[in-house]
Design a protein around this nucleic acid. Structure first.
Length: 593
RNA sequence: CGGGGCGUGGCUCAGCCUGGUAGAGCGCUCGGUUCGGGACCGAGAGGUCGGAGGUUCAAAUCCUCUCGCCCCGACCA
């Protein structure tokens, strides 16, 4: 268990004095399970949208989680720092993220009018330290971490503590001399992460993911499957393939196209606006025989440009995949007027055939990206860039000048696994950790260089590794609860056990409870003594609600030197002799998960 | 940012449509009876009805504006 956790020394563990404001009724604003139970069990209170106060019970859980984080980070050579949350604009300018982070960054000015921001993550600050202090390959590798509050001005805070504007993050960064070093550091972190989440009692999946605005590669997310999550992941039911939907691919049944026509033939399709329409239209085509044409605008520093994204008619575009294919550029769907000005037709009648020339006549350039599923397809139907007309007999390689073949489509449940003969399953998931290789993106932009063995100055190779502390807490609840309340994993429970005195007005019971409480504490356990002057039913309900793994009930049987041991998870209780209860609970509580 | 919903004692909500002295349950305080799965009886305390402006003899209720919170979407290391 978590030896040496300082909270064990806290003498104030009498429920009558401990602040645990439980709620009898469900709070109206809480939708997701963890949010509801965090409020009801008296762990958190909301201060504002996406801003929560953690009450003593939650703080105990957080301290235990942080202790596990520290132990596992230290075990792989991590050194703990504590960095400022308040950052000057300059370092964020250096990496281009002052603007890159957009509205998600909290910004403020000091009395002199200088720009500051609240840190969203700490690559900049750590790299600023590294560039001043690291001079030689002999000083590498370094693994630096901290457990600190992060600020993000989320467009829509929600789901209790799952998406918030201020939260605690364990973020670690590795500094190596070369790629091989980074690979080792990365693997160490990955192993540490597995131990951390295992110890916290979470069932998780590691998925390949997009690196997004952070830049980098080998992006791996640690995901907990739960409907409270906001990500979608695809996992194979047969092998270990797992990927975020923004990255997932799948095996499709092969389609045999006919020979087709010598060249595309235009035909009238009045009122046809959608793929669906065309499947019903006489002389139309099945959805998987159509090419879907989407127009996107790529917003770049030097003006914008247009991109056509081509997909099979029955496939959906994943915008992140498109953005990734364009090197993480900012993209948005083109407006209706933009489309008409570009191709002379409206959405619903667009196609890749002749699109480049048409745009060029209008002084515009188009880049065409086609989804891999369209590769080699013939005899397809698509819009003619003329309202109410389509083309049939389109042979893609012959008729459409594709600039880039990429994976753009959203995979769905039931499709084939790209790694084996198994089948993919798409589920909702919550991201609790994210590790990736940054490479030299930050060390180059911020000038963090050291001399290598040949005396040559090279940029430090970095990795970035983050864990959301509240998300561990919340996903533990999402994963472990029942109708009565939370069922904490033993390793992060706020208390190992609760001693419930059914009637404190009976001196024998009260005194026995006190003695038991002290012996359990002496045995090294976190014990909560429910010495409140309440009816037994109220105490049982509360104990269930706050989810303490073991409850020791001191009732009438105390006259026979017998107490009850109740297992919160199994919902079973048994009589135990008073003389044996301490060693019994000690064995159970310290047994690990 | 777009769409929807909600702001009334600490909590959950009714009252608003159709303007006329602000309510219930839970919680809280005191007294009593109870005492192993959210007890019962009695007596109490507690509310600028989110805020501002307007209409009216009169506004929780109608109108305008505004703030906040929740949900869906967009967005999201």
């Amino acid at each position: 268990m978590s030896e040496g956790v300082s909270v064990r020394q806290n003498p104030l563990m009498r429920w009558s004095e401990f602040f645990i404001p439980t709620l009898r009724e469900d709070p109206a604003d809480a939708e997701v399970v963890s949010h509801r139970l965090l409020l009801r069990a008296g762990l958190v209170r909301q201060l504002s949208a996406g801003i929560y106060s953690y009450l003593p019970l939650a703080q105990r859980v957080i301290l235990k989680i942080e202790q596990i984080l520290r132990e596992e980070m230290n075990r792989i050579g991590g050194q703990e720092f504590y960095l400022p949350a308040l950052n000057p604009r300059e370092i964020w300018e250096e990496t281009g993220r002052w603007t890159g982070m957009g509205d998600n960054m909290f910004r403020l000015k000091d009395r002199k009018g200088a720009d500051l921001c609240l840190g969203m993550t700490h690559e900049e600050v750590f790299t600023a330290i590294a560039r001043h202090e690291l001079r030689s390959y002999k000083e590498l590798p370094q693994v630096w971490y901290q457990i600190q509050v992060k600020f993000r001005d989320e467009a829509r805070p929600k789901s209790g503590v799952l998406r918030v504007r201020q939260f605690i993050m364990k973020d670690a960064y590795s500094f190596d001399i070369d790629q091989a070093g980074l690979d080792r550091s990365f693997q160490n972190q990955r192993d540490a992460y597995r131990r951390i989440f295992d110890r916290c009692g979470l069932k998780y999946t590691i998925v390949a993911a997009s690196s997004g605005a952070m830049g980098g590669s080998a992006s791996s997310e640690f995901m907990v499957k739960t409907d409270a999550g906001e990500d979608m992941i695809a996992t194979c039911t047969a092998c270990d393939y797992a990927a975020n939907l923004e990255k997932a691919t799948s095996r499709l049944r092969e389609i045999k196209d006919g020979i087709g026509l010598v060249e595309p033939v235009e035909f009238p399709t009045p009122q046809v606006r959608t793929i669906e329409d065309l499947t019903h239209f006489p002389g139309g085509a099945a959805a998987d025989q159509q090419i879907k044409t989407l127009v996107y605008v790529v917003e770049a520093n030097l003006g914008s440009m247009f991109v056509l994204a081509l997909l099979r008619g029955d496939h959906q575009l994943h915008e992140t995949k498109l953005a990734d294919a364009l090197h993480g550029a900012e993209i948005r769907p083109a407006h209706a007027e933009e489309i008409f000005n570009l191709l002379g037709a409206n959405a619903g009648s667009l196609g890749g055939v002749g699109a480049k020339q048409k745009a060029r006549e209008r002084g515009q350039e188009i880049r065409i990206l086609a989804d891999n599923a369209l590769r080699g397809r013939r005899n397809m139907t698509t819009g003619a860039n003329r309202d109410d007309y389509h083309l049939r007999g389109v042979n893609i390689s012959r008729d459409i000048p594709v600039d880039q073949w990429v994976d753009l489509r959203v995979v769905s449940s039931g499709e084939g696994c790209p790694q084996c003969n198994g089948m993919l399953e798409v589920s909702k998931a919550l991201e609790i950790g994210h590790i990736f290789k940054l490479g030299t993106k930050y060390s180059e932009s911020m000038g963090a260089r050291v001399l290598n063995q040949e005396g040559k100055e090279v940029p430090v190779v970095m990795g970035s590794y983050g864990i959301g502390v509240e998300r561990i807490l919340a996903s533990a609840i999402e994963l472990h609860h029942d109708d009565d309340g939370i069922i904490w994993p033993k390793t992060i429970a706020p208390f190992d056990c609760v001693v419930t005195v059914t009637n404190v007005k009976q001196p024998e019971m009260r005194e026995a409870g006190e003695r038991l409480y002290k012996s359990l504490q002496l045995a090294g356990l976190d014990v909560l003594l429910d010495d409140r002057d309440e009816r037994a039913g109220v105490k049982f309900k509360d104990a269930d609600l706050i989810g303490i793994p073991y409850r020791i009930t001191v009732g009438k049987k105390i006259m026979d030197e017998v107490v009850e041991l109740f297992d919160r998870r199994a919902k079973r209780s048994e009589d135990v002799r008073l003389s044996e209860i301490v060693s019994r609970v000690q064995a159970l509580a310290l047994a690990g998960l």
